[in-house]
Write a protein that binds this DNA or RNA. Structure first.
Lengths: 231, 231
DNA sequence: TTGAAAAATTAAATTTCGGTCAAAAACCTC
DNA sequence: GAGGTTTTTGACCGAAATTTAATTTTTCAA
């Protein structure tokens, strides 16, 4: 039995592919089924409904997203500030290479916002609230952010980031810039003007601003050796 | 004939109200019609389809959004940096008071991104591409940003913002932070920890970071008198 | 004033999915 | 290889978007 991938995975991958090319709305469950080489009914055997399927995809997205953070942390010899900059670039690549995944993460933030707003919470279909996918996401969605916050703390300890900064808020500000960067990146390309702001300048500009925002006493260009475990 | 509002407006307001309380998806065209006191069919007389209705709402959103920018510029005696900070606060209020509008603006960025990505462009329903609403938005969506960029330029001229910054990218970075701020604000409230990051601290933290990021030679706390017209 | 063309409005018909379900097929396991 | 369990199917249902044809209202020139 070669390439006997399990069905869930096949469906999920079909969905990811179609959501990428046609978008969530325009993709019919029947399309997903056809792409996965199964019947429509079967997709409902593996996923409760379309939204559930999307949330399942979102979970994978968060998993991979977290990997990006871990990968940055794994690299040795980087100061906290280096890590943050590295993260920005890595996330940007991740978003370009996995649009749907990145988008699904940002979409989940909207859902979460509704969920935490008492006046909106019941506008979410109970079907979603109860879904295992959603519950799991509630537990794990914050994991990447935790790593990000740790990077800032790290930077404060090693002196590459100003000590007066509050790690949580600071990280969220960076995370905000990443989200906004992805939202704005495309639309900007086509600006008038002679000043050609291509993707590269765009990214460099953001990075520069982030550095200036965070920079502490240590020169980020001189890698800081982090001593021992900080935890 | 009192309160003889024209129908388009009535429909649009009904839609805005329902999209706010139940969300775009969950709002049926019939609901909109009922709320507007007309028959379902008539909404299709005034708007080609549901998406078209949403784009019409988006246009209003951009109009009001632009007003926020203008209002900030209108105030006298503010340095460029002051303006940017003021803008952040004003946009934040706008977003809170007009969730649907703010969201529709951010949603439009997604549409725009697709539109500018050759590989995705045709995943947009032609019906939308052709719609007057969309065409108009293509022309005007950049207006608020133009004003924002002008604020940065202003700040560079009056010394409140570092001269080495590139106005376009710098403004988009701020704009990014605003978008991210709104996406992340809600979900954060419920964090564990003893550190209570409430909305206010949250906003203050962002503002502080923005100031640090932009600050030039002039003390922003001492209002700078801007001499004459700079244009 | 009127009546015919244009505009506004409605209600019903149509279409397009998401979602359900009963039954068939495949797969055990004893 | 009979009985049970799991997987899979495809026809079917209903909700909601969109279309259409028919009806009412408005407009305005003769």
């Amino acid at each position: 039995m070669p390439s006997e991938k399990n069905k869930e995975k096949v469906i999920l991958e079909a969905a990811a592919s179609l959501f990428t090319s046609k978008g969530y709305q325009a993709t019919r469950m029947e399309d997903v089924a056809k792409e996965a080489g199964i019947s429509k009914g079967l997709t409902y055997f593996y996923f409760k409904n379309k939204e559930d399927l999307y949330l399942a995809l979102t979970r994978r997205a968060f998993d991979q997203f977290k990997e990006v953070f871990k990968e940055v942390i794994r690299k040795k010899g980087q100061s906290g500030l280096d890590q943050v900059c590295d993260l920005f670039t890595s996330v940007s690549s991740f978003a370009k290479a996995n649009q749907v995944y990145f988008d699904s993460i940002v979409d989940f933030l909207d859902l979460l916002k509704k969920y935490n707003d008492p006046s909106k919470r019941d506008s979410i279909h109970p079907r979603i609230l109860e879904s295992e996918q959603f519950q799991k996401l509630l537990e794990t969605h914050h994991d990447p952010a935790k790593l990000g916050i740790r990077m800032i703390s790290q930077g404060i300890k090693d002196g590459s980031i100003r000590p007066e900064l509050q790690p949580e808020i600071t990280f969220y500000a960076i995370w905000s810039m990443m989200i906004g960067y992805e939202k704005l990146r495309g639309p900007i390309g086509y600006e008038e003007k002679e000043i050609k702001i291509n993707d590269e300048n765009w990214e460099k500009g953001y990075l520069k601003l982030i550095k200036d925002m965070l920079k502490g006493t240590v020169q980020a260009s001189k890698p800081v050796t982090v001593q021992g475990s900080l935890f």
